[in-house]
Design a binder for these strands. Structure first.
Lengths: 130, 130
DNA sequence: TTGACATATTCCCATATAGGTATATATTGA
DNA sequence: TCAATATATACCTATATGGGAATATGTCAA
């Protein structure tokens, strides 16, 4: 199987940073495609394709006005994302605690750190070796 | 170019629902890989691969304990996602206004709806036709 | 050292991009 | 009807999956 379609849900749709940029741009007020192309410096077909994805998951709404098609962000569609992430709110460390946390971490440096990809033994060193 | 790597940032990493499930599961308390496999009913290699992605973007931390490796969600890494989505908070419609909004929409049904993919003329009907 | 247990990685494959280029479609004005 | 404007779609290509199967790596107990 391959990765889920970008149009499968909001999470996949906003994974692309350009699409997030577009959503931010269209949140202020509705805009025609041309404005997005100019503002974000992207190719017109590229913008149209991104808008298509965003539209398919309901993140933007379109309205035709003459030759132009005005798009606007449908902020409500972003709520699921916000709600999911807010689920972890109670686990967040408060700013003031971070210094303390870091200090404690430095105290016991001994066993190999399994977290930083670089420190992870032979993840890439092996490939290079051959 | 292809889609950005799942390890390129938190947004891409959480685009996969299984990974979100894992994060939720590991938020309560640290767990060995085997527990995730059992709880989410996934293949062990699959879980390991997802954990690898999550670890690369800092969404989980790992700690070895004997033969087991305990993982736990690093909730702080989810904050950027929450902060980005919260940006649109001021544009959200409040529950009570939704009924009103819907009512207004039904009032002027005339021009073709550019939004719903289904209603969108010949998006797929053309392909079928050949 | 050996065997069992716990995870990680490698390989293979079908699929879904995202960008670039070319072209189709829609709308308006002459 | 025709040309110009504004968008959308089609096509091609390189790339990055995610799942399944097989295998490698690491750790502990006997």
């Amino acid at each position: 199987m391959s990765r889920a379609a970008t149009t499968s849900d909001v999470f996949n749709a906003v994974a692309e940073s350009r699409r997030r940029d577009i959503l931010t741009f269209l949140a202020i007020e509705e805009r025609p495609v041309g404005d997005i192309v100019a503002a974000l410096e992207l190719e017109q077909p590229s913008v149209s394709k991104h808008l298509r994805v965003l539209r398919d998951v309901g993140l933007v709404r379109a309205r035709r006005e003459g030759r132009k098609i005005l798009y606007r962000t449908n902020a409500d569609a972003i709520r699921p994302l916000n709600e999911w992430s807010a689920t972890f709110e109670r686990y967040w460390q408060h700013q003031l605690n971070r210094v303390k946390e870091r200090t404690e971490k430095m105290a016991g440096e001994s066993s190999p750190d399994l977290n930083s990809p670089e420190t992870n033994p032979d993840t890439k060193s092996k490939e290079k070796k051959s």
